[in-house]
Nucleic acid binder design. Structure first.
Lengths: 238, 238
DNA sequence: CGATTGCTTGACTGGGTTCAAGGCCAGTGG
DNA sequence: CCACTGGCCTTGAACCCAGTCAAGCAATCG
């Protein structure tokens, strides 16, 4: 077999998130170019990927692990705007800087692209930018859903929405009625605009009403999917 | 003078938002193509532009007027996710449908492009998609700022942030220390995740502390910019 | 095995909501 | 010209959901 470019070992081609990440926009030949500007990095738990208002020199794809992104007020109040899982993309910027901080929750391996290199890739393969737009639109819709949650849902509705979203994002989807919570109660509280105590109490109430089970603090089992969904959508019987 | 394409009357070329809207991505020659797929529409106050989950057949640019976008829960609770002003863009979709509803607040004239036509423009001028991505990133950052506001700010901080943002978006910017409020108190409440009564009471309190003036219910004057900004950023003296 | 960290639970508080009037103003019609 | 109406905003009083303050518990770690 001739030793053409596509037969040389290209790490990207056997990447475990190859088909779920933005790289899916490129075929095996095109991805050689992407491979050339990418590198893997691994960060330990609680390490910062970047800070809000840092120059946005890199884009990231999460290969394995979990990342949280947040914004803060001067006095320390924190609002987590998202939790990212393997396959997720990170690093959209505005005016050349990141609009939020990012930290890894568990030890996380990411694929990192330089923005400069990315610009060249985009010039060559417009499909890549098209994918980025799709992705940004999707994130925008998710952020607006988050706005609805924070602006108009009760504590129980917020937590149920969170459980559903988290389960959907896990490998295997929502089908196995089970979700791991890689983040702490404080993280959940800061995502849902609540306090740690309210999160804990609401978990307890959902257990008592038979909506969920919590075999361990970081493992949720959905006991009554219909009830959970009705609550999440604000359609529970008054 | 020869009658080349650029000298024929192209409405887009004399559009008042020509340089502030996404059309700015195209030069005078390229915009001829955009002109071919665009049309103006005018809607009276309180009319719906589109509903959440409608097929996203059109993209819009606001020429003159004001639009609000929102999401709702089954029982009628409403969360406004944004107010749009002239020059603003509207219509990013996910999976072919709009992720929110849009209504005009005041009589509004918009420029409308068909999505199909847009796809062709993008193929010809990749700069257009690049601009859409910039725009989506910008909206995403704004949505995350909104998430911070709803999740972690007090009523007074929310209202101050809103006043600042609104003033900045008005023609002339924040410099004249004055802003028109085209929306009702109910709209403001549904944007800030509060009730109409809390909005009203908070306006009164801000008046009493000399932060703002309200010569008319729909006209705000910034009396103490520093105080307003400190409050908006959550940096006010405890 | 004490110390630390993370989670839960209880008692009390308070900011914002709910419920209820009342005021203001533009539009309408007698 | 003024009474009436309805929409919108403001104000007051009572209430309640989530926050605050304070223990206590369970698992992990040095």
């Amino acid at each position: 077999m001739a030793e053409t470019a596509t037969h040389i070992d290209i790490p990207c081609q056997r990447c475990k998130v190859r088909n779920r990440a933005i790289c899916a926009a490129l075929d095996d030949e095109q991805i050689v170019d992407l491979n050339a500007i990418s590198e893997h990095i691994t960060l330990e738990r609680e390490r910062t990927v970047f800070f809000e208002s840092d120059p946005a020199d890199y884009l990231y794809n999460i290969i394995d692990g979990n990342v949280r992104i947040h914004k803060s007020l001067a006095d320390g109040r924190r609002q987590i705007t998202g939790f990212l899982y393997s396959g997720d993309f990170l690093g959209l910027s505005v005016a050349g800087v990141y609009p939020y901080s990012a930290e890894v929750i568990t030890t996380t391996t990411m694929c990192r692209f330089s923005r400069k290199g990315m610009t060249k890739i985009i010039e060559r393969y417009p499909a890549f930018e098209h994918n980025l737009l799709q992705l940004a639109s999707h994130e925008l819709a998710a952020a607006q859903e988050h706005v609805l949650l924070l602006g108009r849902k009760t504590a129980a509705e917020r937590l149920c929405s969170f459980i559903l979203n988290t389960a959907e994002k896990q490998i295997g989807g929502i089908s196995d009625q089970r979700a791991k919570l890689p983040m702490t109660r404080q993280d959940i509280a800061d995502y849902l605009g609540l306090t740690i105590e309210t999160v804990s109490r609401t978990f307890t109430r959902l257990k008592k009403t038979g909506t969920i089970r919590l075999p361990e603090p970081d493992t949720i089992e959905i006991a009554n999917f219909q009830q959970l969904e009705d609550l999440a959508l604000g359609e529970a019987a008054a």
